[in-house]
């Protein structure tokens, strides 16, 4: 069991550590370029190619989407209450607490824990989150959000495009599958390296209060995952993936939003750092649970 956990977790934390070490060694890391390239090119390719590896799980697709929507909604309300309980209800706290790092970290864990089919389910959650949570977080941070912006997110098109093929029951032509697989290969490793490099650059403070909040948020995430999956009666791989995705630490992009619009960036940075550090301990536990449940 321990070895199996290592197989899943090592790639993720080694990549993050490499990104962290790269920046700490004084090497330049063009984070802006990497995130631009990923959001516009490689992540859409990965989403497109990955969704086709969903074989056998077609029927559950609708359920996965609904479960993801519900998980994200509950997470939002619960975070609101959590922030209120800690007397820190503000925009920065709200977007940070309700976010999950379901992209880089979540997807690679889904892939190594459950294989290509797990990755496909993980991508579905990620796509729903991009569609719902990303605009919501921008709206809260910025104060307004133009709906037209939603249609400028290439991931949305990749999802719709893949959905189109699926609805028609057609496999994409091999040249397209090969191309998107090749380019999509950039996404996860560079996002993990970028996560490490961001962690090396953000200035995290120390505060017991924020630590308690971070800890509560991590417990809350897993609880939401458990609640939603049992509500929908999910089992096996889909259950495991949704619980994993809900148990992820706070997403780094919320720090970028908080920083740009001056929504308590320092506290958000601290919480990103703290939840990520907590995840080193909590992810193995969650994984042991979901893998044990399956096997």
């Amino acid at each position: 069991m321990l070895l199996e956990l290592l197989t899943v977790i090592a790639p993720v934390f080694i990549c993050v550590a490499l990104g962290y070490g790269w920046v700490r060694q004084g090497n330049p890391f063009p984070g802006h370029f990497i995130s631009n390239m990923n959001m516009n090119v490689s992540v859409p390719c990965m989403v497109f190619a990955g969704l086709f590896k969903l074989d056998g799980q077609w029927a559950e697709m609708g359920t996965v989407i609904m479960a993801s929507v519900l998980a994200i909604a509950i997470m939002f309300v619960a975070s609101l209450l959590l922030a209120l309980a800690f007397g820190r209800l503000s925009r920065g706290y709200l977007i940070a607490l309700s976010s999950t790092n379901c992209g880089n970290m979540g997807l690679s864990l889904c892939l190594f824990a459950f294989g290509d089919a797990g990755l496909a389910v993980g991508i579905t959650y990620f796509a729903v989150s991009t569609f719902l949570f990303f605009p919501l977080a921008s709206l809260i941070a910025e104060g307004n959000f133009q709906l037209s912006k939603l249609f400028k997110i290439p991931i949305i098109y990749a999802t719709l495009f893949a959905g189109g093929f699926m609805a028609m029951g057609v496999e994409p032509p091999r040249w397209l599958a090969n191309t998107t697989t090749l380019i999509g290969g950039i996404a996860i490793p560079t996002m993990l390296l970028a996560l490490g490099s961001s962690l090396a650059q953000i200035e995290a403070g120390q505060s017991l209060r924020l630590f308690m909040l971070s800890l509560s948020r991590m417990l809350l995430g897993t609880a939401v995952g458990l609640a939603v999956t049992s509500l929908f009666g999910l089992t096996g791989l889909t259950k495991g993936v949704i619980i994993l995705q809900c148990s992820m630490p706070i997403a780094v992009f919320t720090y970028l939003l908080a920083d740009r619009y001056h929504r308590q960036p320092r506290d958000v940075a601290t919480m990103v750092m703290m939840t990520t550090l907590i995840s080193i301990g909590s992810i193995p536990l969650v994984l042991a649970f979901v893998l044990g449940m399956e096997g």
């Binding site: 790639p11 990549c15 490499l18 490689s42 690679s108 290969g185 950039i186 996860i188 490793p189 993990l192």
Partner: peptide, 8 residues
């Protein structure tokens, strides 16, 4: 994971 980023 890291190697698949090399070629693209």
């Amino acid at each position: 994971l890291l190697g698949q980023a090399a070629i693209p």
